[in-house]
Simulated assay, not measured.
Amino acid sequence: MTGTPGAPAVRRPPAMSDVAALAGVSHQTVSRVLNDHPSVRPETRERVLAAIAELGYRRNSAARALVTRRSGALGVVTTSSVHHGPTSTLIGLESAAREVGYYVSVAAIDTFDGGTMRGALDHFLDQAVEGIAIIAPQVDVAEAVAAFDVPVPVVSVTSGEPVPGPAHVVAVGVDQREGARAATRHLVDLGHREVVHLAGPQDWFDAQERLAGWREACAAAGVAAPEPVEVDWSAESGYREGLRLADAGAPTAVFAANDQLALGLLRAFWERGLRVPQDVSVVGFDDEAGAAYFVPPLTTVRQDFPALGRSAIQALVGALAGDPPPRTLLPATLVPRASTAPPAAR
């Protein structure tokens, strides 16, 4: 490579000694600049940074980890599902980790049997990760987490009650139950005396908690709570059940367990000539991108995934410092829009 006259001809990846030679400083001075030490004079710092840029020097993270016993890496185990919640949680975690100087290694797995989970955890331990976050939206994921005791802090990102397991596993999640109570109360406060619930798959903690919240809110208000309809998370399922509800004599209000189910309901009711919200009010959950642009704009419950990511990373950092926090549940927020209104007289 070419460079300033007198610079070493480097054919291998440039080392710290090459930076020192080009900048005319000691190896220790380069190290101080890299670690942002305050004792370096500004002009010296600028000279070292210029040499780093010219040579394209990159710090050897593996060597640094050997010296500092810190890798700067966190592992994240997640489901390979593309559903809104797990995907948004992963994005929130990765962004929050970068904010505090960590990078993330991800293992997205299909099944959470003992062998698969052990393989993912061993992979992370081979990378010398400092902590592991596990996105655990389903019962089998939480059970797999509880089955292993790993030598680094673990944060389980879940809305379910923690499965008994290693003491150093900390749980962080969003209060799905209160979010569902808020959605149901909103419909009751508008005057609806019956709220149908389109429930998500009950092997998901979020679906379990939303179902429980709906039941509690209906019971507290003394309104009818028909037998919930359990479906998957897809708009297709919402559409299919919407057609069935419309043909059976539509209720005045439906609380759908996520926004995709609500989207399917809106399509089905439109096809059957039912107006939302004049004939049927619809509430979703998640406030996914685009929910405000459904026709009509969807009343829903927002989860703050960036805040969830920050909370999970803060829990890991706290655990690394020897101070793991208690279980954390973040609030979910009702977002009223045009898909809900008082019931029409029938």
Rank of each mutant, 00 (worst) to 15 (best):
R244Q: 08
V100H: 05
P201N: 05
Q278P: 05
G119P: 04
V301N: 03
A291C: 08
D149G: 10
E227R: 10
P164S: 12
A65T: 15
Y293H: 13
P342G: 14
G222C: 06
R337W: 01
V301I: 12
P42V: 09
N60S: 14
T252Y: 01
P326I: 02
T158W: 04
Q260P: 03
P343D: 06
A53W: 03
V25E: 08
S234Q: 13
P151Y: 14
I52P: 00
A53P: 02
R58Q: 14
A53S: 12
T299L: 09
P38T: 05
L265E: 02
A315P: 02
L308V: 09
A144I: 00
L187C: 05
P137A: 06
D206F: 08
R210F: 02
A219E: 15
A345M: 08
L261K: 03
A62Y: 11
I132Q: 00
G85W: 10
R177W: 06
I109F: 00
D247I: 03
P8K: 06
I135W: 01
M16C: 06
L49P: 01
R177A: 15
V25T: 15
G191Y: 04
A120S: 13
P5G: 05
L334Y: 09
A257W: 01
G213D: 12
G131D: 01
E209P: 02
H27T: 07
M16V: 03
P251C: 10
P226N: 02
V280C: 03
A220N: 12
G3A: 10
R98F: 12
A65D: 09
G85P: 05
A199E: 05
G290N: 06
L90V: 09
P5C: 02
A133N: 02
P297W: 01
P5M: 05
L190H: 06
V282G: 12
H37P: 06
T340Y: 08
A262F: 07
E236Y: 06
D36Q: 15
R310F: 07
A51S: 12
I134M: 11
T79M: 05
G75E: 13
A65G: 15
C218I: 07
L308C: 13
G3Q: 08
F285W: 08
P343A: 10
A246L: 11
L190T: 03
S71Y: 04
D287I: 03
P297T: 02
G72T: 08
Q314D: 15
Y239N: 09
S281T: 09
A268N: 00
P325M: 04
A128W: 10
T252M: 04
P14Y: 00
V25I: 10
A146R: 07
A128T: 08
G238I: 12
N35I: 07
L298S: 07
A108G: 13
Y293S: 11
D113E: 09
L308R: 03
W270M: 07
A9Y: 11
H192I: 07
L245M: 15
R272Y: 10
R302E: 15
W204C: 04
A321D: 15
